[in-house]
């Protein structure tokens, strides 16, 4: 286990040191009192869990403390971990048990700059390494050099890229890509899209069209629609996940940039309110910096050992 998650743990090392020392000072030899609850709230809010989720966790922890007759702060750590863990799910990558869907089509969506293109490349590498025939598509025809960016990744990883022209129709690229993936017998096709803020009506409509057209090109596709969330995002992440889920039936999330010291605590609100599993975690800018989401490592990152 330590092996599988070693990178994650290494990536979070610096953060963990900071959190750890803070946690030691909070829990240390203290008794459970109001100051402790305040400190705990501070830790949770500073990890971007948000007020409601933090309050919810504290409430439930207070109940546990009373039920179990705890009075040493230190005894709470274990229960805090469980409390946090229980709010998240470790789910398998749906591609693993989608035997009949070929090509398995994944649509990548999210706001500007969250990490979609990089994550597309990272995913492609993971699937390629597991022996699958992978193809990626440059559905961002809008942003300057977005196509070049994905093309560079394709070249580096030796993965075919389907692309149109800058300024072209993104839905048409997606359609062509599905056709090409079928024709070439690809196992999996990952379609990158342009970043868009969830409040921009026209851009969300455009994304719906891309989603629709993929379904026309292949029945049942896209099989997965994943939102890439920037782990540094605060309370807005919930609104992002909500809007994209409503518009294009997002059924999974990827938490990018967890290495940058952000804790990604909004994942708890997203799990609670939208029942959206987090499938992968981005831990750096290199193609190998993507790991299956692991709630234990994630929770460790938030509270330390």
């Amino acid at each position: 286990m330590a092996d599988i998650f070693s990178k994650w743990i290494k990536g979070l090392d610096k953060t963990r040191k900071v959190t750890f020392s803070r946690l030691t000072s909070v829990f240390g030899t203290n008794e459970i009192d109001d100051y402790l609850w305040d400190d705990l709230e501070e830790i949770l809010i500073q990890a971007d869990l948000g007020i409601d989720t933090s309050a919810d966790i504290l409430k439930s922890l207070k109940r546990t403390a009373a039920d179990q007759g705890l009075f040493k702060a230190n005894d709470l750590v274990k229960f805090l971990k469980i409390e946090l863990m229980n709010r998240l799910k470790d789910v398998p990558d749906p591609f693993q048990d989608a035997k009949d869907a070929k090509p398995f089509v994944i649509l990548m969506v999210g706001v500007n700059g969250s990490g979609k293109t990089t994550t597309t490349a990272k995913l492609a590498k993971i699937y390629q390494q597991s022996g699958k025939k992978v193809m990626i598509a440059a559905g961002d025809t809008f942003r300057a050099a977005a196509i070049d960016q994905l093309q560079v990744w394709g070249d580096r990883l030796n993965i075919p890229v389907i692309a149109g022209k800058e300024g072209g129709d993104s839905a048409a690229v997606a359609y062509d890509a599905v056709q090409a993936a079928i024709a070439r017998g690809s196992d999996i096709l990952i379609i990158d899209t342009a970043g868009r803020l969830q409040s921009r009506f026209n851009l969300m409509e455009e994304l719906k069209k891309v989603h629709r057209v993929i379904g026309k090109a292949l029945d049942g596709a896209p099989h997965a629609t994943w939102i890439v969330l920037d782990a540094t995002t605060g309370q807005n992440a919930l609104s992002q996940a909500k809007s994209f889920k409503e518009s294009v039936k997002v059924n999974g999330a990827i938490l990018a940039k967890l290495d940058t010291s952000a804790k990604g605590g909004m994942a708890f609100a997203i799990a609670r309110e939208l029942d959206l599993p987090i499938i992968y975690a981005g831990l750096g800018e290199k193609p190998e910096d993507l790991e299956r989401f692991n709630r234990e490592s994630f929770v460790e990152g938030i509270i330390g050992d």
Partner: peptide
């Protein structure tokens, strides 16, 4: 989110920041 504070501290400690630009304000 909350990380903003540490980001600002980190950059300020390395270079002499003279101004801020807040991007993506067209969102909600």
């Amino acid at each position: 989110g909350q990380e903003a504070l540490h980001v600002a501290e980190g950059f300020r400690d390395t270079v002499k920041i003279t101004g801020l630009i807040l991007s993506k304000m067209d969102g909600d």
